[in-house]
Every structure is written in C-alpha cells, then in structure tokens.
C-alpha cells in the first residue's frame, strides 16, 4: 500500500522536478544589466535591441516590457512605447509606474483614447482580473484548491465539523471557476497595441481600396480583434472598429 502511494506521488512530482529554462537566471540578470547600462549611457537603440533579444528568447517579464517602453519613449517612438507599456500592464497590472507612464503618454498623444474597452462579458472578466496577472491567478486558484482540500480532509477526521466541510467544498468550486476564467482570459483576451505612424488610416475592410473611416495618430492605444493577411481588425476604447495595416501597429505578445 505504502509502496503504491510512493509510486503515485513520484509520478505526480516528476513535472515539478523538470528544469525547462534554457537560459540561467544569472545569465538573464547579466543581460538585463547590460541593457540597463546602454540605457543609462543614452544608447537607447542598443538598450531596445537587448531588451527585445531577451523577450524573443522567451524571457517574458513585465518590468522588461516597462523598460522597453521607457527606452522607446526616449527615442520618441511613442507608438512602440505605448504598446510596450500595455504589454507590461498585462504582466504587472498593479505596478504604479506602468499606470503612471501610460497616463503620462496618453497626455502627450493627439488621440484622447483610453486603453480600456468595456463592452462585453469577456472584458468584464478582463476588468475584474486587471489587478492580477494570469500567472498570479493560476497560483491563487491552486492555493484555494489546496485550502479547500485541507478543509475537506479535516472534516473526514472530525465528522461533526459540517461547516468546515461546506467551506472546503466552496473553496474547491471557487478554485475551479477561477481556473476556468483564467483559461478563458488567456485564450480569448484581446491583444493590446498602439499605432506607430502618424495619420494612420483606419479602413472599413482589410484591403487598401476600402473606405477610410477615420485616422489615428501615433501612440493611439487599440485592441486587436482579428488578423487577416496584412491587416488587423481593431477596436478603440470609444467603440469604433476598423481595419489597419499590421505594419502600422506596434504590439508585444
């Protein structure tokens, strides 16, 4: 019996022992430091290249996107800067500096558009979870599950604690709902980006012959709804939709 339990536990603990990282944390630290040194020296292009190389290498970090945005800002590439800050917001949603810089950048842009779209259930989920990242939500739901299971286990040994049992079941259900919502958010949430070029035409269709509905200026934040060849379907915070050339939009993951 004991042997069987040990075998089962070993099987489940196998993924925990895997070391999937190709680059070591020390190596990442060194490269981040190098990028920051470029930034301090005023070589913003080198800093951007180094940050982007880290991101392309699979190191996804909200602070890295934030630094990328600041470097782009100093290069006066406001569209890319806004897109990088919006990407940073996705991974570190409670960071005050990110909110600060988005707000600051918005104040400098011609189009007074917010970086929030609130028109359907999915966006409501987005809004509720805008203070917690996907990774944090996953860990939180796991903690809830563990807590719920512990309470259920306690009940097994103390049958008279019916309340504990009910609470445990509630926590388990909550953890499952949270995990499902998080999964939905990861797979269906809109990707945010920003306009790179001034007076970018937003068209009614995904081809250059379509009617120009309106124009957007550098840095205008937008949500990407759909990709079609070289065009992106976008939605703005004021509800307007249209198609823009993908090359005119900056967006990071």
């Amino acid at each position: 019996m004991t042997k069987k339990v040990i075998i089962i536990l070993s099987l489940f603990s196998l993924p925990l022992q895997t070391q999937a990282t190709q680059i070591t944390r020390e190596d990442i630290g060194n490269r981040v430091q190098t990028a920051n040194s470029y930034f301090d020296a005023g070589d913003y292009q080198q800093a951007v290249d180094t940050y982007l190389a880290l991101i392309d290498g699979g190191h996804i970090n909200g602070h890295l996107f934030y630094n990328l945005g600041v470097a782009y800002y100093h290069m006066q590439r406001l569209g890319e800067a806004m897109a990088a800050f919006l990407a940073a917001r996705r991974y570190i949603p409670r960071d005050a500096d990110v909110a600060f810089n988005i707000n600051y950048l918005q104040g400098q842009l011609s189009d007074r558009l917010s970086a929030e779209v609130m028109d359907n259930f999915l966006n409501l989920v987005n809004y509720i979870s805008s203070y917690i990242s996907a990774k944090e939500t996953s860990i939180f739901s796991l903690i809830l599950l563990a807590l719920g299971l512990i309470l259920v286990t306690v009940f097994m040994f103390r049958r008279q604690l019916i309340f504990i049992f009910k609470l445990g079941i509630l926590l388990v259900i909550l953890a499952i709902i949270l995990a499902i919502l998080n999964h939905t958010k990861i797979h269906l949430a809109r990707q945010w980006g920003a306009i790179k070029n001034a007076a970018t035409a937003v068209r009614s269709g995904a081809n250059p012959n379509s009617v120009v509905l309106f124009k957007l200026n550098t840095g205008a934040p937008l949500a990407i709804i759909k990709h079609a060849n070289t065009y992106l379907k976008i939605e703005l915070s004021d509800g307007r939709q249209g198609w823009v050339e993908a090359s005119s939009v900056a967006s990071f993951l």
């Binding site: 990282t21 944390r25 990442i28 630290g29 981040v32 920051n36 930034f39 699979g58 190191h59 996804i60 970090n61 909200g62 602070h63 890295l64 934030y66 630094n67 600041v70 470097a71 800002y73 991974y91 570190i92 500096d97 600060f100 810089n101 707000n103 600051y104 950048l105 104040g107 400098q108 990242s133 996907a134 990774k135 996953s138 990861i186 993951l253």
Partner: peptide, 21 residues
C-alpha cells in the same frame, strides 16, 4: 498629464523572474 516627466526604468532582480504562464 499627471507628472512632469516619464518614470525611470526598473532595475534589480525582479527583471529576472519570468512572468508568463
């Protein structure tokens, strides 16, 4: 605009943590 200038870059070990799921 709420501040006179943009905030500076972030530094330290927090940049080495992978935030993606």
């Amino acid at each position: 605009p709420a501040v006179a200038t943009i905030k500076d870059i972030h530094r330290g070990q927090r940049l080495t943590v992978n935030h993606s799921l």
